[in-house]
Design a binder for these strands. Structure first.
Lengths: 268, 268
DNA sequence: CTGAAAGCGCTTACAG
DNA sequence: CTGAAAGCGCTTACAG
């Protein structure tokens, strides 16, 4: 491949000018810019990202740190982030901390990020304090999704309010015997969301003056399988709920599967 | 952060020696190596990957190119590749070409890879000829998964043999009225697998002298939804199959869902 | 608007 | 076994 000097020679300018022209910086005459663009196209020139990173300190890469890549929710977050980053000219460094057990498989190491990325996106990941400190020390922006973390921007929904709204919707439709399928967070992830969502459910029920018996609140695994189990359990009751609020999409998938299982008499 | 020169000064050696010692290269005395390691640890030194890439030409990054990140099969491939690469000290650059339509959303561009990765892993992706040529030109190794591609290593299973084996297993159990749920490949992916798997089914049936009527072979979408639809269709028949061979895990998920739908009389 | 030159921070022959 | 020096290929003040 050609280097910037080849383009400079071909265009009859300095490498500094080529650099400016190609990056669309101001203070390059239109005519010069065009000559450079033509020469670059002719030479099929692509700037070496490693060289420009070294010189500029920018990498054009954003780390996306996830606890699991295979789960529905995270896969969709990755897809969305990846698409948006690409639209803005960024590359994605995928960091899968792969936690399927109680202890995280991988501890975040500063050499995963150091001088390698311009920023990091941390998805619903529960981090050890020293990991947080390490990420902070690296000096690039960190945005977390789902888990508020002091000092970092965070994108999340109002967990309490969202479930409250869903519950109120059902109450508005006339339901009174509403069940809630919530549960335990996945090992490596945020742990406030499950509790907050249950709080939202209870708040809406309380506001409506509806009782919440123990059987109405299921504490399931935060997965389709957990939802399936909880759903079957609810359906096996003599007196079933007339509606169910589920704390997450993935658990809802499981509850819907339960509803499809054969052998249930029609509810109501 | 500290630079290699700081470590060299602290250890009383040249930067060349620091470089060799830290990377475990031979021809460094044990004593010198230890001094360097101590000095590096003391300074919390981490080599700048962009600088070492520029000097060495190696990036320590492997591109993982996928047509979809959210589908079960691809998510698992990504997770597996990512884990294995990390174990070997490589980082993962995720390239999601995101195709949900007939035309690919993104065309592979050489600037996604140029001087950015040491190799690429291409997962079941159907590429345009010019994309293949472009990847070849970049001069790093490419390994494809699922789709054989001239000149590249490829990891795949024996599609014909695998389904033949599955079918023979059912035949061995005494089944004769066996259905096959195969289908159309996803837009951006390989297109030989679906055909090959159907071939394996038909071959096994033919070898056993069993007829294959039209209704026994479903041509569904290569997704859980496709499997669900095909499965329901089979279950609605007066004379059902006694066993079903499904061409992919994702379609099988759908067929299993169909089997769980209420309202079916027990088969047999 | 443009260029000469320093600098980013390593690695790698080449000598010794 | 170790070091001096060139080189990887850009970007960025600084001058003009």
């Amino acid at each position: 491949m050609s280097r910037i000097e080849d383009v400079a020679l071909a265009a009859g300018v300095s490498t500094a000018t080529v650099s400016r022209a190609l990056r669309g910086l101001p203070k390059v005459s239109a005519e010069t810019r065009q000559r450079v663009l033509d020469a670059a196209a002719e030479a099929r020139y692509i700037a070496s990202p490693t060289a420009s990173s070294l010189a500029s300190g920018k990498t054009g890469v954003v780390a996306v740190v996830v606890p699991y890549v295979t789960r529905w929710y995270f896969a969709h977050l990755i897809a969305g982030a990846s698409q948006m980053l690409r639209e803005h000219g960024y590359h994605v460094l995928l960091v899968d901390v792969g936690d399927e057990g109680p202890g995280r498989e991988m501890l975040l190491d500063s050499r995963l990020f150091f001088k390698r990325v311009d920023a990091a996106l941390v998805l619903s990941l529960r981090m050890h304090p020293q990991e947080r400190e390490m990420l902070g020390r690296l000096g690039f922006p960190v945005v977390s999704v789902g888990v508020p973390s002091a000092g970092w921007s965070c994108v999340r929904i109002d967990d309490v309010g969202a479930i409250r709204l869903a519950t109120e919707h059902l109450i508005g439709l006339g339901h009174e015997r509403i069940a809630f399928v919530g549960g335990k967070p996945l090992p490596a992830t945020d742990f406030t969301t499950p509790g907050d969502r249950e709080t939202g459910f209870r708040a809406a029920m309380a506001d409506a003056g509806l009782p919440v018996r123990d059987w109405q609140v299921a504490n399931a695994a935060w997965t389709p399988a957990g939802g399936l189990e909880a759903g079957l359990s609810l359906l096996r009751r003599r007196q079933r709920p007339t509606a169910v609020v589920v704390a997450s999409d993935e658990m809802a998938i499981g509850v819907l599967s339960a509803a499809r299982e054969p052998g249930h008499r029609r509810a109501r």
